[in-house]
Design a binder for these strands. Structure first.
Lengths: 127, 127
DNA sequence: GCTTAACTTTCCACCAATCGGAAGGTTGGA
DNA sequence: TCCAACCTTCCGATTGGTGGAAAGTTAAGC
């Protein structure tokens, strides 16, 4: 299977699949005579794995770790859990940050009458 | 006032203040004989304005718009409110996205017993 | 067999919003 | 006068790709 087939199968842009090959995250199984990347079942599974992990917001580095655990029959689930927990902590931190921003900004917006006059509590706050 | 004084006053790194000058977001009032950037009161106020807006997560482009409204005595608060509302919408979209990720990932993590065995619902889900 | 479209390759540049560091000039105090 | 602590510009790295150019390949249709 060539790169566009693989890309379609995992719903990633061709450019991204090529990028993952370039950085050694998911290498194609081999190359055709013409130099085209060829993806077999195993490469395709890894690509799909990474695609799903990325959708969870795992960084490329985290995907690399998860992938090596995925490939390791001797892994302990504790290692996987640790990486996922880290990501969860990141998400929670971001959520707290956004909640604060949201509250403050929503308050300012609600105070602003939004008419044709220049007086504006949003500008006042930022000044 | 030179760049490090200005940076300290608005609590931004010197590098960032220089960057804002480079991209024409907040230009210094002038240059000293030696070529040092000099910040006066007005430049300092603009810098502080941008610093606060950035803390709300407004992009550089949005800061540019807000800054021009800040400087415009003829502005209508509706214009300001529009930009702030856009940012609020961005924040809310991000919040929804994170909430989904959080729920899914928290569920997976709670299902994973995290011991020495390789069986792992997190890996299973990503596979 | 030939044309043509739709692939593929590599390489280089760009995005946001900085940060880090090198090389060299300036300033102010002991 | 010397030295530390500034300042300058310029170049490169970061994250996770995306866009495009130039050139080679493949497959279908005529």
């Amino acid at each position: 299977m060539n790169i566009s087939g693989a890309a379609k199968a995992v719903e990633l842009p061709v450019k991204t699949v090529r990028y993952y090959a370039d950085i050694g995250l998911v290498s194609p199984a081999g190359r055709s005579d013409a130099g085209y990347r060829e993806y077999d079942d195993k490469a395709l599974r890894k690509l799909g794995f990474v695609a799903r992990a990325r959708r969870f917001g795992f960084s490329i580095a985290q995907c690399r770790e998860l992938l090596s655990l995925y490939e390791d029959a001797e892994r302990s689930s504790a290692e996987v859990r640790k990486i996922a927990s880290e990501r969860l902590t990141e998400i929670e931190a971001k959520q707290r940050e956004l909640a604060e921003l949201h509250d403050a900004l929503a308050h300012l917006v609600s105070e602003c009458c939004g008419d044709g006059r220049p007086d504006c509590p949003i500008i006042d706050y930022l000044s």
